[in-house]
């Protein structure tokens, strides 16, 4: 399974996805260093902000929690497809998902 990450320079990278591990960790483990992810996935910062560009057919993302929504909402770069990548756990339903790393706040 894999997914696509577009970095801030506009380059798309195909990343091997490890099941049960967050998108944030998968992106970081692939050597893409644009996510600071300072709070380590505990929904206390918004430094792993991504846009979901395209979901595989039929796939649905779990809704964002109130804390995640509040953190994203305050970003200068908030869009309707904004998510914290630490809150999305990779698995078959996210196979071939396409995401773009949001600009740094």
């Amino acid at each position: 399974m894999h997914f696509t990450v577009t970095t801030r320079d506009g380059v798309a990278h195909t990343v091997e996805g490890r099941e049960g591990t967050s998108l944030m960790q998968n992106i970081r483990n692939a050597g893409i260093e644009e996510l600071q992810a300072i709070c380590g996935g505990s929904i206390s910062c918004a430094t792993c902000h991504v846009y979901i560009d395209a979901l595989p057919g039929g796939a649905e993302l779990p809704p964002a929690s109130r804390d995640e929504g509040d953190l994203l909402d305050a970003s200068d770069y908030f869009e309707d497809n904004s998510r914290l990548s630490c809150q999305l756990i990779f698995g078959p339903q996210l196979d071939r998902v396409r995401v773009t790393i949001a600009p740094e706040d």
Binding site: I43, A46, D67, D70, D73, A74
Partner: peptide, 9 residues
């Protein structure tokens, strides 16, 4: 009060 935290930053 995450909302205050992000908006108050």
């Amino acid at each position: 009060a995450t909302r205050d935290y992000v908006q108050g930053r």
